[in-house]
């Protein structure tokens, strides 16, 4: 589904990603872990189409198509979803209006007619129940005045509404208490099918207790320095990131 080959990217001349290789297949859940500043959020932003970064080398294909040439909205319509680490507050844009526009844009792309008002509202109700989002939140402006937990839940709600093929969840666990974390994880697990894939980006191991990954990658200084099964998370939990940093000191000296 997603193939990343030797991806290098920089911002204002600083190289952040120094050759990423990654392949994600349908039905898989991948976790990308790593200390702060290792490039996790940069990778997710580049996959979603943020133009702040310059891709200097490498390629990214999504279902065989070059992803890097596509504007963010086309990536979204093709089935890529980014759950933001810091969801943006947009005062004055109602959740309902926002979601109706988004869902219908995606449907238009798939040659489906716009949803009727009643079908749309029915869909909203179902998806709200799925992620246990407070009904009142969807009648407000996008993320405006939402608590940290509500914002994250809202990201999963949007994911449920848009039914992406590949969801990239950027630190969805940060700032969540354990109950909110469980709800978010429950929502994500319910949305998982053999046809879609999920990349979970996280700093901590605890989210992976609830969203169990097939593969874990450790990102450090712009490179994937370790790949393994879910047991890797426990090892990281036990030994901390210093364990990763030690054998990679040579990278810093390059």
């Amino acid at each position: 589904m997603l193939i990343i080959k030797n991806l290098r990217a920089s911002i204002e001349g600083n190289e952040i990603l120094k050759g990423i290789n990654l392949e994600v297949k349908a039905g898989e859940v991948h976790a990308i872990m790593g200390p702060n500043g290792s490039g996790k959020s940069t990778l997710s932003a580049i996959l979603a189409g943020r133009d702040l970064y310059q891709v200097t080398a490498g390629e990214v294909t999504f279902e065989g198509e070059n992803l890097l040439d596509l504007p963010p909205e086309v990536r979204a319509r093709k089935g890529i979803f980014l759950g933001f680490q810091y969801p943006v507050e947009i005062p004055g844009v109602s959740m309902v209006n926002f979601m109706r526009t988004a869902v219908n844009e995606v449907r238009k792309f798939r040659n489906l007619p716009d949803l009727s008002s009643s079908d749309f509202l029915k869909m909203m109700r179902e998806k709200k129940a799925l992620v246990e989002i407070d009904s009142g939140l969807t009648s407000r402006s996008v993320n405006e005045g939402f608590s940290g937990g509500e914002k994250k839940r809202n990201e999963i709600f949007q994911m449920a509404m848009l039914e992406p093929k590949l969801a990239i969840l950027d630190e969805t666990d940060s700032g969540l208490d354990i109950d909110a974390l469980k709800t978010v994880a429950y929502g994500v697990n319910r949305l998982k099918t053999p046809q879609n894939a999920i990349i979970v980006i996280t700093h901590y191991q605890r989210l992976l207790d609830y969203i169990v990954p097939d593969v874990i990658h450790v990102l450090y200084q712009g490179r994937i320095v370790k790949t393994g099964g879910k047991e890797l998370a426990f090892e990281l939990e036990e030994k901390g990131y210093d364990w990763i940093k030690e054998p990679n000191r040579e990278i810093e000296n390059e």
Partner: peptide, 25 residues
């Protein structure tokens, strides 16, 4: 905000309109 809207499938023009409307709202 523009980027956020676009990552949900809303094209640049529509996203700008939404934001301008919100500004006036």
């Amino acid at each position: 905000a523009l980027f956020y809207l676009r990552t949900r499938g809303i094209d640049s023009r529509e996203a700008r309109l939404l934001l301008m409307h919100a500004f006036g709202h």
